[in-house]
Amino acid sequence: MKLTVKQQKFADNYIKSGNATQSAIDAGYSKHTSRSIGQENLTKPDIKNYIKDNLVKIESHKIMDATEALQLLTSIARGETKETVISSTPFGTTEDEKTADLKTRISAMKEILKRYPSSDKLMSAKIRKLEAEADVAEQKARDARIGGQDVGKQFDKMFERLKEDSDK
């Protein structure tokens, strides 16, 4: 059975608000009988099914599917997705858009590769190289924050160690 215009308005309002009485009033039912009409409408099979079907549609749009997840991971790995970074300065705050750092991009690539397993040694080597570069950059930043030390010498030593490890 098809819903009447009032019943459909009631159901649509109920889906939005979850309030049967107000939904009945908004659909055009009398204020005096809106409470009982609202409760009665919720027991009618056609209205119940309409509400249930539409709630399922709404919920399915809120849940990310595998394709969406892979698309997001890919855009992060490629550096296409930007995030807003808010920084505090002596003159106030600034908002900057920045791409994900190397570690985040590598993590996104790993997540993608988990879904497409392969024994591609070249890809593994590239990932190891990127990870080493990210570790070097992170250590360099840490050393620079510490201050008072010769960052260049530490960087050279660390880079040589990483190079030796990657050659093994």
Rank of each mutant, 00 (worst) to 15 (best):
A77M: 07
R128E: 12
S119H: 11
E40K: 10
G152L: 08
S17T: 15
G147S: 09
F159G: 04
D135P: 04
K110H: 04
S75R: 09
T21K: 12
T104W: 00
R142F: 09
S107C: 08
N41F: 03
D143K: 12
K16I: 14
K121L: 11
I146R: 06
S36M: 08
A141N: 06
D65C: 03
D53H: 08
M64K: 14
L113K: 13
G152Y: 07
M123V: 15
D65W: 00
A77Q: 08
F91T: 06
G148F: 01
G152P: 00
I112N: 05
F10K: 02
H32F: 11
F159Y: 13
A144R: 09
D120C: 06
K126E: 14
N54R: 13
M158W: 12
I106Q: 03
A144F: 12
N13D: 01
E133V: 11
D150R: 12
I127R: 07
K98A: 07
I106L: 06
Y50T: 03
Q154V: 07
E138G: 06
L102P: 05
G148W: 01
Q154W: 08
S75F: 07
N49S: 10
E164C: 03
Q7M: 07
E59R: 15
K98R: 14
D150H: 07
K126R: 14
S88K: 14
F155P: 03
D120G: 02
K157F: 06
S34D: 00
Q22M: 06
H61D: 02
I106N: 02
R105A: 14
I86Q: 09
P90D: 03
L70R: 13
S107P: 08
I146V: 09
K114I: 07
M64S: 14
G79A: 10
R78T: 10
K157W: 01
T81V: 11
E68D: 11
S17P: 01
M109W: 10
G148H: 03
Q7A: 12
E131T: 09
I63E: 07
A11Y: 04
L162P: 04
A77N: 08
R115G: 01
K103A: 10
K9D: 09
K157I: 14
E138Q: 13
D143A: 10
Y29M: 02
D156R: 10
A100N: 09
A27P: 04
T4R: 06
E111L: 11
E138T: 10
Q8E: 12
S23T: 00
E111A: 15
D96H: 09
I112D: 01
I76F: 08
Q71R: 09
I146Y: 04
V151Y: 03
E80R: 10
V151G: 08
I146A: 01
D120P: 05
A24Y: 05
V56T: 06
E83A: 14
E68V: 04
K6R: 15
E95L: 11
D101A: 00
S88W: 10
Q154Y: 11
